[in-house]
């Protein structure tokens, strides 16, 4: 890439181990909420949300989809930083 790119993503890896503890807790919460959702609560805002794990799935896949879409869109929209400057 010709652009003055930011930090390479590989640099992030060294940061992530510090996160690990948080991550486990985080995943624990996710699972816990899923269990709660499945066993106790009924949603009745719309007809969709009674589907099991609707919110979780929507949140997860929605995010994945728009990130991927964004990456696709970037190809179309990306220009050099000084594109508008003359």
């Amino acid at each position: 890439m010709n652009y003055n790119s930011g930090k390479p993503i590989s640099g992030l890896r060294s940061q992530i181990p510090k996160f690990v503890n948080f991550q486990n807790i985080f995943y624990f919460f996710c699972v816990l909420l899923l269990v709660i959702d499945f066993s106790f609560i009924t949603h009745h805002e719309t007809s969709f949300d009674s589907i099991p794990f609707f919110y979780a799935a929507f949140g997860f896949f929605g995010s994945v989809i728009f990130v991927i879409l964004a990456v696709k869109i970037r190809k179309l929209l990306l220009r050099a930083e000084d594109y508008f400057d003359d």
Binding site: Y27, F29, I36, D37, I41, H44, G59, F60, G62, V64
Partner: peptide, 18 residues
């Protein structure tokens, strides 16, 4: 409870996707 849970689920799984 429903609100809190659904919102939490949405947010947490979205975050996990991140």
């Amino acid at each position: 409870a429903s609100h809190i849970l659904s919102q939490s689920l949405l947010l947490l799984f979205s975050a996990s996707a991140f």
